[in-house]
Amino acid sequence: MNMGEIAIVIAYAMATNFIESLTALLMLLFICVILPAKWLRDVFLSSGSLLVILSLGYMMYISSHIASNDDSYPTNIVRLIPVVGLLILVLAFLVGRIGFLQKLFEELADRAVIFFYIFLPLGFISFLVVMARNIF
């Protein structure tokens, strides 16, 4: 592949990650809206961060499980998704109530903001590139 083609693949990757990030954020906001304010909205930074980290970790587990199996549908794992999802939600809610953990996740989220400044413009530009290539 030449440099141009590699750049296009990177644009697709960045655009996909951009939309994935937006999806994760929207899911979080949706949960925030439907739950009582003091459950999540008031401790959004700490509980929200933990919720995202645990959910993505669980996705990683599912992904690696799929990869290590020969194209068979992971029925047991899929059945457990609602249970694990609920467990993650409860865990996130509880952590929001523990002072030092709350502070830890707030500090972590604070430092992770730098990635936002890097990836947001790159993701947005990549998204525009992909859109342009598919419209024109």
């Binding site: 990757a13 996909t16 939309i19 994935e20 999806t23 996705m59 990683m60 992904s63 990869a67």
Partner: peptide, 9 residues
Amino acid sequence: ASASLIFGT
């Protein structure tokens, strides 16, 4: 595992 964690999975 796939490089796209959410959509790929």
